[in-house]
Design a binder for these strands. Structure first.
Lengths: 105, 105
DNA sequence: TGCACATGTAATACATTGCTTACATGTGCA
DNA sequence: TGCACATGTAAGCAATGTATTACATGTGCA
């Protein structure tokens, strides 16, 4: 993982609002409207946050049909573990500057 | 560590520019002007980044006198290891919402 | 037909960051 | 005296990120 990718992941998670979303999804799978009520923010805003989290790979969402015919978009947490220390950063930076000479991976 | 504190730390580190700074300081102690040349950015800009990193506790700076009488502000890396997973976030969020009822820590 | 509840997005305003330029101040030295 | 090199900060601007409001669309049901 290069510096830009790592930065994207960290930026996605580095927000109190998004942390709350992740914490809630950590307990259970929820659909957007329900999640919006739980976390106390507008759907539109939640949407932006969810999009960011999904792009970074922390959550995954998929549309489902409820028994009574309503379309519900459920989001669930994607398990992850990130360890951050100086060496991690050195490696990420190294892979970034050498972006040109990538042989296999 | 509550959500806001964690967010501050992650935000500080979630920047390719600041990652480069940390990576450089990981190898050696450097003073601001020299660091600015190495990383290829203006001193003023570097200052902002260093301030952010210092507030988050990733680097520490102190003024020193060079043999020839110049004041040099050296920065060095503060060793750190951060592990991020769902539980970490749940804990951080929990400590934030219970901000009112803090007993001892 | 109209209400309740769902998804999805556009427009807009506002706040925060990131960055550049410029200046003030201080030391050593030719 | 003036140049080179250092710290430290303020002002202004461009780019991002955050948040609100509003609208279009669809389903079930009284």
């Amino acid at each position: 993982m290069n510096a830009d990718q790592l930065s994207a992941k960290l930026s996605a998670i580095a927000s109190p609002q998004r942390m709350r979303v992740l914490a809630l999804l950590s307990g259970e799978r929820l659909h957007v409207s329900e999640l919006a009520r739980r976390v106390g923010m507008s759907r539109a805003l939640l949407y932006m946050h969810l999009t960011k989290l999904e792009e970074a790979g922390f959550v995954a969402g998929h549309l489902e049909m409820s028994p009574d015919g309503k379309a519900l978009k459920y989001f669930e947490l994607v398990p992850f573990t990130l360890t951050l220390d100086a060496q991690t950063l050195v490696d990420a930076v190294a892979q970034t500057t050498n972006e040109s000479e990538k042989t296999d991976a």
